[in-house]
Design a protein around this nucleic acid. Sequence first.
DNA 1: ACAAAAGTGTTACACGTACACCCATGG
DNA 2: CCATGGGTGTACGTGTAACACTTTTGT
Lengths: 235, 235
Amino acid sequence: MNRYPGETHVLVAVDCIIFGFDGNDIKLLVVQRGLKPEKGKWSLMGGFLQPQESLDQAADRILKKLTGLEGVYMEQLQTFSDPLRDPVERTLSVAYFALIDIHQYEKQLSTDYHAEWFLLKKTPELIFDHKKMMEMAKRQLRYKAALHPILFELLPAKFTIPQLQILYEGIYDTTFDNRNFSRKVLSTELLIKQKEKDKANSKKGAFYYKLDKRKYKANFQAFLNFIPNPDKLLM
Amino acid sequence: MNRYPGETHVLVAVDCIIFGFDGNDIKLLVVQRGLKPEKGKWSLMGGFLQPQESLDQAADRILKKLTGLEGVYMEQLQTFSDPLRDPVERTLSVAYFALIDIHQYEKQLSTDYHAEWFLLKKTPELIFDHKKMMEMAKRQLRYKAALHPILFELLPAKFTIPQLQILYEGIYDTTFDNRNFSRKVLSTELLIKQKEKDKANSKKGAFYYKLDKRKYKANFQAFLNFIPNPDKLLM
DNA sequence: ACAAAAGTGTTACACGTACACCCATGG
DNA sequence: CCATGGGTGTACGTGTAACACTTTTGT
């Protein structure tokens, strides 16, 4: 077998920052670590890169192993490389963040991994540099969501504008004018109005919408600017 | 020594996408590869991650080895992981992109590495997946420069507004109204007017400006929007 | 009838854009 | 004195924000 002689090989892990939204709050999915050291402590879901797979494949595999879900929105965030980040041995970690519809995976939380959803604002202590990863993912989510229609990934197939607004408000920890918000969202023409209303939260009821998948993909790169004053909110 | 038993270790490389601007054109710094295979072909400047260093440190080391420069603007782009990307053995590559003032490193191009500046629009064929890396860096540069005052990193300490405009026009491959451009830039109050003018390009002469480093750092996160219609230009 | 959330209409204003025009100066 | 690039003044229109007001319907 060919080799580059004399170079050091390292272990590579993939860790997933998994976000969900339950209709009111943004949540983070974490697991109880099964390995020593730090066994039993809270950790991002992760695993080691296998010989024949790419990082994207590893991230998909790891997410599927925990949640059973496939085709989830996921993107590579950053590679963490402090030589001392893992006390056992030198391990790079490539962080991915994922957005999932929490309803697809709320009930049957994996007992194998002791998975649990935490409020993003009240996450427990995490091992190693996982907190740093989570903070970066949060920041990236805010950044990206200000420019791209990414947050639909957190919602079920049918959702109302007020629900969408609550999600955006949660992400940016602020409130928006509901009247302007709905107009702005609808002006993108990314949503298809349904016949039914959701009457859970008001007597009048709010119409359900579905995402126009075709337009969504076509316009993903467009700067949407749902968010007033992004420069102030993203500091 | 502790170990995670049974896991595969891989080689990790760092490759740098190095951009420069000569006053008219955006350029890319590449080297002639010194190793087999593909020896003699054009390649991004790179090297292997060493046991005791972080990726950022490796990137700094590699850039310094080639150019002698330190404190250069650099950011981690993405980790590339196709199992077959390097035919010799499985090697992850973490790509970094760097912005340097070309005048700091134009003359004494390293003969050790056979370094050469190419017009970004006329880059030669590159080995492995380096073209993909370069394309991603280009895209990221456009993206980031639309929102953050990052392109000053490519200019010398003193520069004129028309020079800055040529740079922006090069990045986005378009032209802007010079009258509006200068006003927009100056309205950020990030620039400090100098007494001298640059008369190389006009009889009237254009005032030199320096970057207000303090404000630059403080406002880096602010969305600057130098670019009209970013959504159209970034597609 | 009333309360409470959803949604419409309207207005003021900031901002981006376009473009006529003035400025400075070397040849 | 004119050609050339640098730069200012200003007018117009679009898009955003603010907010009064209407709609719907369960209790």
